[in-house]
Design a protein around this nucleic acid. Structure first.
Length: 424
RNA sequence: GGAGAGGUGGCAGAGUGGUCGAAUGCGGCGGUCUCGAAAACCGUUACUCCGCUUUGCGGGGUCUUGGGUUCAAAUCCCAACCUCUCCGCCA
């Protein structure tokens, strides 16, 4: 969310940023509302001041045992004026708030301007794997090995749900533990295990609401939402708090399942694990000093990349162009992993700096030596990493001619020493 | 699900209608003392909005939130949310 002052004072910069993000929002309304708001505010504050003065006089008269009647009646008149203005102000402020909540974050200066075609591959690691046979897709592999049961998953919950079985279930569990271990032991993150149902305030704090309510699973009775990513509960851990500067950066790693309705996205990549309603993910979330946030973003991407390196999966890192940025992001790197069976690069991680956009919405500030006054932190998050698609890459890249799947070495200790998933 | 208690500053905790942004204690910060430290003592210590002649000044708001009563609300009434205790149910 924006500071209304920023819009007021830098309207041209905000406009060009929004244009780069390819968002068409008129700022004229909000500017007008803001002016009207301040005008009414001045009027009502003047009256309130009069009221306070009159109130003090009434107190004094009473103490002196004098008759306050005259003052009381004049105060009634003042109060009536206030009562007239207050609803108008409230109404205007609500409209301003609604406008502000609907404005996306602006791209950072280092972000290429343009649509998806302007995304830049900033580096890559490993070579897309080649085979001396036609590589199968993960769907074929998983069905042959009997480690994923899509049909029964559909019976249980509908299409685009997954039932892992046997070594498939074990692989999922192994990956979660492996990733958490790497991030907590080697990258210094603090492990948390948050609720996967969160309230409306939390969803608004990170920016999923109000814009993307249709994409979320919602419990009507309680008005709770299934988290689309651990970013939501973990970032909201510090909602409404003033953090001690010396504790920064605060870095959390969290595993949660993630739930997405994927409304309207059917038709693309409909088969298999690429787009599902529930998947597992380890998420990394950071709360940092504003001056550090872009360095922290680079580190964050590195931490996510490390997972793919350890798993031996070839990937490339994309710097997203302004038009491809999500609502809340100022800068974002996607990591795409090559999947040999589909012969596609799959987005398996997304690492973003939100600057103070989420912090402002969620009211997360810090103070300390460099800022005696509380200041908004910068928040970042990145998948470290998303499992369903990473499983696709593992199955497709580690398949053998016989239809077996070799387990990446780093996962073997997590799988009771299993080296290969075989047909049984 | 039933019954009760309660939500006040970083924390603890007073405050039952006007003099309360709020006693007191702890913590934090600055100082005195000291070679240094501890202790003791002194001082200081919330956030936010608006305006202006903008390192300052003036004013408004904030005691969970939202309504209401009143000339006047931290204080009274109603509702919501949250927390705690007991009972029931339960992995």
């Amino acid at each position: 969310m924006f500071d209304i002052k920023l819009i007021r004072e830098n309207i041209e910069a905000v406009k060009s940023g929004l244009a780069a993000k390819n968002v068409k929002i008129s700022l004229e309304d909000i500017i007008q509302l803001d002016q009207k708001n301040r005008q009414l505010l001045m009027a009502v504050e003047e009256l309130r001041g009069q009221k306070n003065t009159a109130n003090d006089e009434i107190s004094r008269l009473l103490k002196e045992k004098k008759d306050p009647k005259e003052k009381i009646s004049s105060m009634k008149a003042i109060a009536a004026g206030i009562d007239h203005l207050e609803p108008q102000i409230k109404e205007i402020q609500m409209r301003i708030q609604d406008c502000l909540l609907g404005i996306p974050n602006l791209p950072h200066a280092s972000v290429p301007v343009g649509g998806i075609e302007k995304n830049q591959v900033v580096r890559s690691w490993g070579e897309p794997k080649t085979f001396d046979f036609k590589p199968r897709t993960h769907v074929e592999i998983a069905e042959q090995l009997d480690i994923i049961d899509f049909k029964r998953a559909a019976k249980l919950s509908g299409s685009h749900f997954v039932l892992f079985k046997r070594a498939g279930a074990l692989l999922e569990r192994a990956l979660i533990n492996f990733m958490l271990d790497v991030h907590t032991r080697e990258h210094g993150y603090t492990e948390v295990f948050p609720p996967v149902l969160v309230n409306r305030e939390s969803m608004t704090g990170t920016g999923q609401l109000p814009k993307m309510e249709a994409d979320m699973y919602r419990l009507k009775e309680e008005d709770l939402f299934l988290v689309p990513t651990a970013e939501v509960p973990v970032t909201n851990i510090h909602r409404g708090e003033v953090l001690d500067e010396e504790k920064l950066p605060i870095c959390y790693a969290a595993y949660t399942p993630c739930f997405r309705r994927e409304a309207g996205s059917y038709g693309k990549e409909t088969k298999g694990l690429v787009r599902v309603h529930q998947f597992d993910k380890v998420e990394l979330v950071k709360f940092v000093r504003p001056s550090d946030s872009y360095d922290e973003l680079e580190k964050l991407v590195g931490h996510a990349e490390k997972i793919f390196q350890l798993l031996g999966l070839p990937y490339r890192v994309l710097l997203l162009a302004s038009g491809d940025l999500s609502f809340a992001a100022a800068k974002c790197y996607d990591i795409e992993v090559y999947a040999a069976g589909l012969d596609k690069w799959l987005e398996c991680s997304s690492c973003s700096n939100f600057e103070d956009f989420q912090a402002r919405r969620a009211d997360i500030r810090f103070k300390g030596k460099t800022t005696p006054k509380p200041m908004f932190v910068h928040t970042l998050n990145g998948s470290g990493v998303a499992l369903a698609r990473t499983v696709v890459a593992i199955l497709e890249n580690y398949q053998t001619k016989d239809g077996d799947v070799i387990i990446p070495e780093v996962l073997r200790p997590y799988m009771g020493g299993l080296e290969k998933i075989r047909r049984s």
